[in-house]
Design a protein around this nucleic acid. Structure first.
Lengths: 257, 257
DNA sequence: CTTGATAGTTTTATAATATAAAACTACGTT
DNA sequence: AACGTAGTTTTATATTATAAAACTATCAAG
């Protein structure tokens, strides 16, 4: 695949920032990317001119620009699933007091596109715009469990099962077995596999063609996940998932295979 | 300012998309930017490799990638004003039934970073991630009215007062007079200046240093803006604005000048 | 106050890359 | 089957991105 080195370098600059690294000096940027400082300077000024990078007037440090937010919301802002699901997440959060999420698959990761905080915010990991591994999260499992064998093979080729907690699945065999359980039950669970002390129940969302393109999940502190709670919550989340899918045009009665 | 042509070109590709143009063919992209199709192809493939552009497998058309959403939320996700204001927007919307917005200044435009729909969604213009002119909107006026004369001069140098509706202010003199009224009242109004049939009340939000860095607004259909409604709503929105500013560390009592 | 180190910005020669012409593949229409 | 258009690939070379060098600015140490 053809690659333009200077564009590649500019976009790598954008990749340097994260939740904890919100600003960087030019010397740090050139050091991390092994670039000459005048090259880094030119790249930064081009990004800045377009609004993708901003420079703090007082400290001279660089940070991500708001143009990313503007353009980013164009991607997600017109997704039907987001506006339709929103109401349901709000309702479920009010009914249960727990945190709800909406996630879509992007490549071989989930991406949080909505989140409704519960009354006591205990979920730390999730954040709109953040990515989440498919093997260690309820939403990740729900997103890929119903893919065709060919699609699943493509997604999992070369996939690395990084350990997130002591309970994370770390090999493909166990992961495939778990996906089988997801298909049987119709929902996914992650018991502290992604975030210690947090358990999530996730339901796939289908589009008008019956394909799973999103998932919703409810997250809670593990001690709250009693058998009784599971029996109460799963039907509620499933019901919300079905309504969201139907509002997206999914017609389950036509699914004869 | 040094500019790297190929990075500039790549970012211009990202600018081609908008709310109505969500996908484009490679020939259209090369035509619009007056680029050779093989140049466009190389640029697109580099953007795609980083996730900033996606290609539809069935149609071959290009669209903005989710990496923009991810990076964009890094910019805004850690802004205190957003999480603090959120609660107040929700409360005001529940109390009044109207749509509330949170906007920050980015260059010489406002940028919507949060929105809470009222019970009857009548505001069409605003959308999270969208930009809004400062001269024709309540939030825009609120954002710039309290700038120092030097800052205001810098913002307005070369500024073009595009007509948005029949009621838009279209020259600097009238705009500066209007900003004076905003300073006197402590809030801004746009009477159908930005969107026909919609009136907005906006309040500036100050940070811990007393600088206006954001604004909130309540929007309603113009017929609902009776004198009685104004008398009722302005104090509520002002109160919310003051609490949000205080929660951001603003201390009004220290403002002796 | 001077000196030295480091960071950031600018200049410019040239090595390296981006560019676009040409060629190729694929698809749809006539 | 032929033609036109879209999309992708190849490759020669014109053009640009690159980085060395120089400059400016700031800060800390002596």
């Amino acid at each position: 695949m053809p690659l333009i080195q200077s564009v590649d370098r500019a976009l790598r600059i954008l990749d340097l920032f994260d939740e904890y690294t919100t600003e960087l000096k030019i010397t740090e940027i050139s050091r991390r990317l092994d670039l000459n400082k005048s090259t880094a300077h030119s790249l930064l000024k081009t990004l800045q001119q377009h609004g993708y990078i901003d420079q703090d007037h007082e400290t001279g440090k660089y940070k991500l620009g708001l143009k990313l937010f503007e353009r980013g919301n164009l991607v997600v802002g017109h997704l039907d699933v987001r506006s339709i699901a929103r109401q349901h997440l709000l309702e479920l959060s009010m009914q249960t007091g727990y945190t709800l999420h909406l996630v879509i698959l992007d490549g071989r990761e989930g991406l949080y596109i909505d989140k409704v905080e519960g009354s006591s915010a205990t979920v730390v990991y999730s954040r709109i715009g953040r990515r989440i591994p498919i093997h260690s999260s309820g939403v990740g499992k729900a997103l890929v469990a119903f893919k065709s064998p060919a699609e699943l093979r493509q997604i999992l080729e070369g996939y690395v099962y990084h350990r997130q907690t002591e309970k994370t699945i770390t090999n493909e065999q166990d992961f495939l077995k778990e996906l089988e359980r997801v298909r049987e039950r119709g929902y996914a669970i992650d018991h502290e596999e992604n975030e210690p002390g947090i358990t999530c129940i996730a339901i796939p969302i289908r589009n008008h063609m019956g394909e799973v393109t999103a998932a919703i999940s409810l997250s809670m502190p593990t001690p709250n996940m009693t058998p009784g709670a599971l029996e109460t919550l799963v039907p509620k989340i499933k019901a919300a998932g079905e309504v969201i899918s139907q509002q997206l045009g999914y017609q389950p009665a036509l699914r004869t295979y």
